[in-house]
Structures are given as C-alpha cells and as structure tokens.
Design a binder for these strands. Sequence first.
DNA 1: GGTGAAAACAGGCCTGG
DNA 2: CCAGGCCTGTTTTCACC
Lengths: 158, 158
Amino acid sequence: MGHHQLDELDYKILKLVASNARIPFLEVARECNVSGAAIHQRVQKLTNLGILKGSEYIIDSNKIGFETCAYMGFYLKNPGDFSHVVEELRKIPEVVECHFTTGQYDMFIKLFARNNQHLLEIIHTKLQPIGLSRTETLISFREIFRRQLPIEEVEDLD
Amino acid sequence: MGHHQLDELDYKILKLVASNARIPFLEVARECNVSGAAIHQRVQKLTNLGILKGSEYIIDSNKIGFETCAYMGFYLKNPGDFSHVVEELRKIPEVVECHFTTGQYDMFIKLFARNNQHLLEIIHTKLQPIGLSRTETLISFREIFRRQLPIEEVEDLD
DNA sequence: GGTGAAAACAGGCCTGG
DNA sequence: CCAGGCCTGTTTTCACC
C-alpha cells in the first residue's frame, strides 16, 4: 500500500501525462529538461510499478446515447457472497465502477444507461436477480465536472 | 442531447481508442481496413463534435499516496447557491467529480484524500465552510473495478 | 540512473478520385 | 469521404557514460 519512492521527475511526468495521454514524450522531455529516452524509461518504470495503469479517451456519454448516469448502493442478501456478486456485476457492461464500502452499504456502483427506462430495466432484469437487498439509487442529472486527482509530491519533512 | 449520426466506423474507432489512448492511429486503421488518413479525419470529427473530450492516463491513486476514496452527498443550505458552491468545489483539488442529483441529495461528489484523517480535515476545513447541510459520506474500502462505458452501435431499426 | 544518435514508425498535410 | 504519397516529428533501442 505504502507508495513507492518517486522523485520530482516522476511526479512531473505524471502531472503532464495525467490529463493528456497523447502528449508526445519529447514534449514532456522538453518541459522536464531531460532527453526523450529518459521519459521513455521513466514511463516504463511507472508502468511496471503499476502506478500508470493504461490510458483512456474521455468519451461524452450523453453524445453516444447514454443519457442516464446513476450510482447505486446496496447490501447483499448473503454477505460472504461478495465474489459471486462481483463476477455477476462484471458481466453487466453498463456497470462502470464497483466498490466495497463502509457505512451505509456493502457495495457501491456507478452505471450508465440509455435513459431512465433502460436504467429500470437493468435494475430489474440484471441487478435484482443477483441477490441484492436494500438498494438505493441516485441519479445524476448532470456531471458538472470530472478531473484527475491532484498529483503532488508529498512534502517530505527533512 | 440527442446523439449524432455515427456509423459503424465511428463506433469501431471509439471502441478501440476508449481504453487505450496511445494506440497508433495506423493500428486503428489496419483494424478497420481503412487508411490512416481516414482515422485521422474521423478522430478530428469526433473531437469537433465533442464526443471525444481528450485523454487521460489512469494513475493508481493508492500508489501515489491517496489511500482514501470517498463519495459525499449533501443538500445546500441556500438552494439557489448552486453556482457559488460549484465554484468553491472546483477550488478543492481533491474533489474529482461533481454531480447535480435527484433523490436523496442536491449534489454528489467524489473525492480522494491521503488517508481518513486527511479526509476529515478536508471535510471540516474546506467543505463545511461552503454552506452544505445534511452531508453523508461513503468511504470506498476498495475499488474492485473501473472501466469504460459500453460502446455499441445503437441497433437502428430499418 | 542518464545521454545522443540511428532506424523504424506514426502523424499531419496534400492531391486527386 | 477515402487512398496514397511525402515530409516532419516521434518512438524505441542501443552503445556509452
């Protein structure tokens, strides 16, 4: 869990690539005053360490026909069924995030649907049969913003 | 809101770039049996339409020292204060998503913190002063999975 | 750990169908 | 709206430090 020893250059690279996965490494190199090969090696290292876990294009879900974004929290009918439930959730492509949580629920998921009726359909035909209890659904009217987590070097005290 | 008229090639491109922002366009071109120039033009079109909204590297938040992921729902003390609250939330870098919602809350956010104590600190010193009421916090123990929304051509009926 | 140069490859811009 | 060619810039590897 504890994080690895990353130096200033690592953080600078992470900051630059975080919100632009297609930035040329040579441009990163120029910003960092090192060679392109150095960036290439660092990115490889960060990937091997599992700190960089791939890249994504950000796609406007509304514009490709997914107008409903919802979050759902629920309890399991049989606690201990965790892994089975996770497997079933993985099979539902509309479920895009899945968390174990503490507090009000056992699990918490984010999902997209084409519209509200489609959401109901997913809940009734795909989610309920898995064996959930006390589900609560929260519909996002609008995503106001979404961004990367702050990447900052932890201020090590000397 | 209504989605644009995208054809099979557009969807195929979206599917390929969605989960790998650094895939060479020429590789996409080979998969789709068209020229690189065609992909280039399509990506440009999809960007101009706002369907592609940039790209991101996926960074393991735990490994860079953000071990606590939380969701918070809340009501506003003064409804009508929406835009002010949003401005204030934008200033808090740990807040990575912000939604208008319907149902149990007025707004819903996702945030990262270094640990649970840091989360409390953020809530007390940054969030509470904005003017929220009835906040509820849900802490994610573990993100089990996270992926892109399903990109599929809408089955147009003839 | 880093550099610098070379080869292979991809991106961007044409022109023409 | 796409193909093919061309030139520029980028990626990747390598010997070397």
